[in-house]
Design a binder for these strands. Structure first.
Length: 452
RNA sequence: GCGCCGUUGGUGAAGUGGUUAACACGCUGGUUUGUGGCACCAGUAUGCAAGAGUUCGAUCCUCUUACGACGCCCCA
């Protein structure tokens, strides 16, 4: 038996419809915010992700899928979206365009790690970046944009945590102070943190073992080490967030792992029961140093990324009802070959007329065909009958009320149009999405109606 | 990379070192040769993740591998 690769998933059926729906919401929202879609390769040169420079060396231990191709090139499957976007920005000389460049991506990423709750080896992330502006409004827009996508999808319980690392000078100073603070407390830290003290002291604040200890609670906070410029900048971000009516909390323990981050960093978490250890839906921050580090012009950038898998989990746990079409409009049943031919013909006609139509393929008993119609949630069913067909008639039954009408075959499109397209309101009830009445990007059936 | 627990039909699962692997759901057919969802009857794993070992004999014991769940590391 060939099994799928560790940490990879097949997504199909209802779940696949949820994924497609999420994609459609992302596309609609990003369009309104005027971000353009960008597709970069899944494979990149290994050194794009394993740069090994900066203040920590653990960057090279990143858990990526690396291989050497037939030409001897060192290749890495992209573990995240930002580096590829920045590489593309530089390579295509987008810095010559009108800045800032606002882009979004949505695609598969690979991480060579042990799968566990909320963490797969193959994952899908969407994200957006603003390249070429250092204005605090960009920081606020990215955060509010992320929040708005979650809201549009119907997610209610989300929490925004923000922090500022300050500029490089502030950040370095903070790092020094942190090491100075923890050194005397070495013995009280867990073994992992002792190592982190050397490699990446900022991450001690994230430690799961020691997180409740007073040593960590009383550790120096990034915000106390911001120089005046950085502090002003962070205040400006908060001001814009207030203007955009984004609720947030300042959480000094949000540091993000990578050393190219500076100034604003943030995470958005789902506050849903049952999420386990990984309840962060997405996060991001400002990375003003990355573009230059990759050999491009010194360009300030900020971005956000969100794992779609976790998003789907959150939507399910919150029992958000999504406008996903799972019903067929009409199911055609038949017994003999003449009727089967007609079923084939009629289903094509009606499909091309815009209805969702299905029929029997395996010549099963009528009983089995009725069951099939129910499994497919057929709104209407029709048992084709040679005699009826010759009389230019068809019996159509409402599969819910069991009311049956005998109508002329010529009138079937008109009949279905009236029955199906006028019953949408009552079938789907009131729309519960927050977006209703406010935005026209909503894909709810109610809104589709209005659009028509 | 480390730790811990798992893997039995389409699904949920019971079970045992010894020739037919329970039960339920589902599915298919029939009772009812063309208007169902109920009821009843029948069928539905040459098979217990894969491989190796112990044994007269392994789904069951041992080992290895693969995959799954959860946690650590890492976190983009």
């Amino acid at each position: 038996m060939i099994q799928r690769q560790k940490g990879c998933n097949d997504i199909y059926g209802r779940e696949a419809k949820i994924w497609k729906y999420i994609d459609s919401v992302i596309d609609a929202v990003m369009e309104k915010y005027n971000y353009t879609y960008i597709r970069t390769p899944l494979i990149e040169a290994t050194e794009l992700f394993h740069r090994g420079i900066g203040e920590s060396t653990d960057i090279v231990t990143k858990e990526t899928y690396d291989f050497v191709d037939r030409g001897g090139r060192n290749i890495t499957l992209r573990p995240e979206g930002t580096a590829g976007v920045v590489r593309s920005f530089i390579e295509n000389k987008m810095y010559g365009d009108n800045l800032p460049v606002k882009v979004y991506y949505n695609g598969t990423m690979y991480r060579y790690e042990r799968p566990q709750s909320g963490r797969d080896r193959e994952l899908t992330q969407f994200g957006m970046e603003i390249l070429g502006s250092d204005d605090p409004l960009c920081d606020a827009e990215i955060i509010s944009l992320a929040v708005n996508i979650y809201k549009m999808l119907g997610l209610k319980e989300i929490k925004v945590n923000i922090n500022s690392l300050g500029d490089n000078a502030s950040r370095l100073k903070y790092r020094e102070e942190l090491v100075k603070y923890f050194k005397p407390h070495m013995d009280e830290l867990c073994s992992d943190c002792k190592e982190r003290l050397e490699k990446n002291p900022l991450r001690i604040l994230d430690c799961k073992v020691d997180c409740d200890s007073d040593i960590i609670k009383n550790a120096p906070k990034t915000l106390n080490f911001l120089n005046e410029e950085s502090r002003d900048r962070f205040e400006k971000v908060q001001e814009y967030l207030d203007v955009l009516e984004v609720k947030y909390e300042i959480n000094p323990n949000i540091v993000r792992g990578l050393d190219y981050y500076n100034h604003t960093v943030f995470e958005i978490e789902a506050k849903v029961d049952g999420f386990g250890a990984n309840n962060v839906l997405g996060g991001g921050g400002r990375y003003n140093g990355l573009c230059k580090e990759l050999g491009g012009p010194d360009t300030p950038c900020i971005g956000f990324a969100c794992g779609i898998g976790r998003l789907v989990t959150a939507l399910e746990l919150e029992k958000v009802s999504l406008p996903i079409v799972e019903d067929v409009d009409l199911f055609l049943l038949y017994v003999n070959e003449e009727e089967k031919n007609y079923a084939a013909y009629l289903s094509q006609e009606l499909r091309l007329a815009g209805f969702i139509v299905d029929t029997e393929y395996n010549n099963r008993s009528l009983k089995a065909q009725f069951k099939q119609a129910d499994r497919l949630n057929a709104k209407y069913i029709a048992v084709l009958n040679s005699e009826d067909i010759n009389n230019n008639e068809i019996k159509i039954k409402n599969n819910k009320t069991k009311e049956e009408d005998i109508i002329s075959l010529d009138a079937i499109i008109y009949y279905l149009d009236e029955k199906i397209n006028t019953n949408i309101e009552e079938d789907y009830g009131e729309c519960s999405h927050e977006c209703c009445g406010n935005h026209d990007g909503c894909k709810c059936h109610n809104h589709e109606e209005e659009d028509l």
